[in-house]
Simulated scan of single mutants.
Amino acid sequence: MLKNDLYTVTAFENNMGTVAAAISLNTAHPIFNGHFPGQPVLPGVCMMQIVKELTEEATGKKLFLNDAAQCKFLSMVDPGKTPELQVTIDYKEPSEDRVAIVAVLKSTEATFFKMSANLLIV
């Protein structure tokens, strides 16, 4: 949905339930014109979608965000100042219909977003 449009994956490692990915934001994407004019910020819902899409890539399964036990937006992502981000996702399949994740989106200077959630396999 957002991959190869809002962001591109520049590195991706999937190792025994842990994903380490590097992404590059498309700073010219039209979403930044409206969110917010003159002060672009990566929308929180897009951070959540990026995590979901990278988890789908890691598991090879189509997923749906069922519940987020914890979702913390710690700092704003200004795409002009921080176009390169790192995403780490620890995941496991506690049952045959869901994937439990703990994810972090950060740069070398700051942590922007943390989430613990269950994604349903659809």
Rank of each mutant, 00 (worst) to 15 (best):
N4V: 06
N4Q: 13
L6K: 06
L6F: 06
Y7V: 07
T8A: 11
V9W: 05
T10D: 00
T10N: 03
A11P: 00
A11S: 14
N14T: 01
N15K: 15
N15I: 10
M16N: 14
M16Y: 14
G17V: 03
T18W: 02
A21K: 01
A22R: 15
I23T: 02
S24N: 12
S24V: 07
S24E: 15
N26H: 07
N26D: 12
N26P: 02
T27W: 01
H29S: 04
P30S: 07
I31T: 08
N33F: 08
N33Q: 15
F36Q: 00
V41Q: 03
L42K: 08
V45C: 09
V45E: 01
C46V: 11
C46K: 12
C46S: 12
C46T: 09
M47Y: 06
M47A: 07
M48Q: 12
M48T: 12
M48L: 13
Q49G: 05
I50Q: 01
V51T: 04
K52A: 05
T55A: 08
E56W: 04
E57Q: 14
A58R: 04
T59P: 04
K61N: 10
K62H: 07
K62Q: 14
N66F: 15
N66A: 14
N66G: 09
D67K: 15
A68Y: 06
A69T: 12
A69M: 13
Q70N: 10
Q70P: 00
C71Y: 09
K72N: 11
F73Y: 15
L74N: 06
S75T: 09
S75E: 13
M76L: 13
V77K: 03
V77Q: 02
V77R: 02
P79L: 05
G80A: 10
K81V: 13
T82R: 08
P83F: 01
E84Q: 14
L85P: 01
Q86I: 07
Q86R: 15
V87M: 07
T88D: 05
T88A: 10
I89H: 04
I89Y: 05
I89W: 04
I89K: 05
Y91H: 01
K92E: 12
E93H: 13
D97Y: 10
V99N: 05
V99K: 04
L105N: 03
T108H: 12
T108S: 11
T108M: 08
E109L: 11
A110E: 13
F112R: 00
F113P: 01
F113Q: 05
S116L: 07
A117E: 05
A117R: 06
L119V: 01
L120Q: 09
